[in-house]
Design a protein around this nucleic acid. Structure first.
Lengths: 226, 226, 226, 226
DNA sequence: AATGAATGAGGTTTCATTCAT
DNA sequence: TATGAATGAAACCTCATTCAT
């Protein structure tokens, strides 16, 4: 339910690809290969050194191409970062098999699976998430991107909370939007603390506790939790 | 109860002042004045431009002193940032009057006041908190500082949660440490989203909802909330 | 026989080019030209201003290129100095025609020609030799280089002295190594005093006297001197 | 006989003290103590770090006085170096007891003792001699000083050589001045190579060989050497 | 005579971006 | 499409010297 890694995210389709990409996409196969190599190299370098501490020359060296070629495909360092973050979205959009419970699973199981999937996706992309946090403080464009991402999930969760309330399964005195933001925030910050800053957590236990806290917070009736 | 702004914080006294300051403190009044001017100027510049995008020359210009004077008191931009963050701690350590409820106030009132105080302190220092997030992704020293800060509050809250459990006022199936981290994370992320990234929140409503969520999450009995 | 300018010198081939050059050599002709211009400009500037008092900007101005280009080819001022000193070795390795006597020339003639060639080579490179003395007192790397250079010549002369002794042409009570160092020192210091510090010498007379002193010192029999 | 350490040197009395010292000497005892502390500290620092790599602040710290006090006694870094070099002259002017042979000692013994005394004095002041070489390449004033020093010794030796020639004890075909410069150069360079650059020499053997070389070079008759 | 804070010109170095080939 | 050399604006930092106290 948080920042869910299970569905496409808006900015990958609209906010990024449209207004920020000005270079023509490659037309030849060779060009496509070079562009891909640059994106992959950029991811490697960014994950290793961060955005600020990386140099374009590191990326082109890693991609085994010249610095001039970089500008055939990207306008700037920022733009290749956008492409790298898009590729992260691609990953988060295709969770591993069996991540989501099927059929008439209990509420608890659904929430827990969602939380677990989020943590797993975050783990795979922890360095890039750190990157996103880093550049969000540097460039309003990325701040907007960061916020947009959070908004997407908050809104989605907001709808789900409202459904639960209407089904008599959640505390109706809670404002759905605020509650959604609060619960999403909880897990995204925990992922950041644990997977980026390195606070040691027992992740199985953590997911269980978070799930309980959500159910408690929403006051899902004991006998309907699953 | 979160990152509480109501009590002294460890790193302000121990971690920062001792190991990170290598320059001799000024001995004359004039020197003290100049150093203070530099710290104040650095805060102004950092809040305006961020850490990465600020130049030492901006700071010295703002402080109306020469670039050489900067190095009389600080080894580097990092070191003056430490001093600025210390001054932030000083502020967070001295909350305004009446922030904390007195005597036999209800549990809800205590938690709500604590959350409100946190948000208020965060608001006053929002740009510096952003700074801390920014440098935490750049420099392990600041990452450690960031984490240490979070740990302090998580541990303090952990103790309080345990007390509530022992008094039969909280769900004993919850692990106190994990729960503490989760609830602290919720509010600190919300403060970041709202006060740094600019998501528009109704803060009064937000504090109320957060407080309800905490009470719900901990399962504080309805009739004991106040 | 002293610091002989007539044969290749070890450090030009081994010690310098290998371990001290970290930048990739240029691959295009244009790059080669720029690198050469920088080395030539550095020599001009170093000879004019010395190593300490020269600025990188002087060198790039002289080479008509940007400061950034300097760092395309060299890591530091030290490194371009190494390249300049290499070029000096190149010069000292290719003495002018007729510097060395041929065939069954007399001992005196051989030694005198060798000394004369040394002085001439020193004269052509006097400012660079001063540079080497200067940096030898500043940087252990160059001190080692200076010493290595002296060792090379001392060892070569040592062998020659031993030959003379074995042929009954030199005082066998003299230790060849010490004697070699002493005689090499004599001429190198004289060259320094005259050509660097500016003591006025009659160089023809000087070479003659030095040669006599060597023959006397070694006790080469009167009737075998030539 | 070389750069002899056994007699006062001109520049200490004339060249340095007169034209280069512009500050008034201290009048109080306290002032005298401070000035002495600064000279001593400068020597320590210069010997440790060289002239170029030393900072005035190191000197004043070492002397336990303020940077301002330095300028009470010296005009510049150069000037305190002059004072330090003067103190070296003082040392070289007062060799240890028994360094020089007395009475009707043999020629060999006199020359050997002189050479030994030179090496010993050089050893005591090796770092300062390096300093002198260093600054001689940087500042014409010190180059002149360096040369003047060498001239003094060369001239003194020149006179002695002439005496030996007139007494029929030395090769009259040798030009006294040139010969004097050559022999002085030999030992001063050897001292530099061994004591500054670190070439390992057996000093007892070295002094013996040098002495033999001098006697040979001058062609002092075998039966008159002692 | 002593202090120590203040000065600021002057140097080195980086690296995103451009451009001639 | 690819290359890699060239660019040059910044930005940091040092330390001899001055000066107010």
């Amino acid at each position: 339910m948080p920042d869910s890694a299970t569905t496409p995210v808006s900015f990958a389709n609209r906010a990024i690809t449209e207004p920020w990409t000005t270079k023509e996409p490659p037309v030849t196969r060779r060009g496509e290969r070079t562009r891909q190599a640059l994106v992959q190299a950029a991811r490697t370098v960014f994950e290793r050194d961060g955005f600020i501490n990386s140099r374009l020359s590191d990326i082109t060296t890693e991609a085994r191409c010249s610095s001039g070629s970089f500008y055939t495909y990207f306008e700037s360092k920022e733009e290749v970062l956008v492409a790298v973050l898009e590729s992260m979205q691609d990953d988060m959009m295709h969770p591993g098999i069996g991540r989501l419970p099927e059929g008439d699973e209990s509420i608890r199981a659904v929430i827990e699976a969602s939380n677990r999937a989020y943590i797993e996706a975050y783990r795979r992309n922890a360095r890039l998430m750190m990157l996103l946090e880093q550049v969000a403080t540097l460039d309003p464009m990325f701040a907007a991107l960061r916020l947009e991402r959070a908004q997407t999930f908050a809104e989605r969760n907001s709808v789900k909370i409202k459904s639960l309330q209407e089904a008599g399964l959640a505390d109706t005195s809670l404002d759905p939007r605020t509650t959604s933001w609060a619960l999403s925030s909880m897990i995204s910050r925990l992922a950041y603390l644990g997977l980026v800053l390195g606070e040691p957590f027992d992740w199985d236990e953590l997911v269980g506790t978070i799930t309980t806290l959500w159910l408690n917070a929403l006051r899902v009736p004991e006998d309907r939790r699953g």
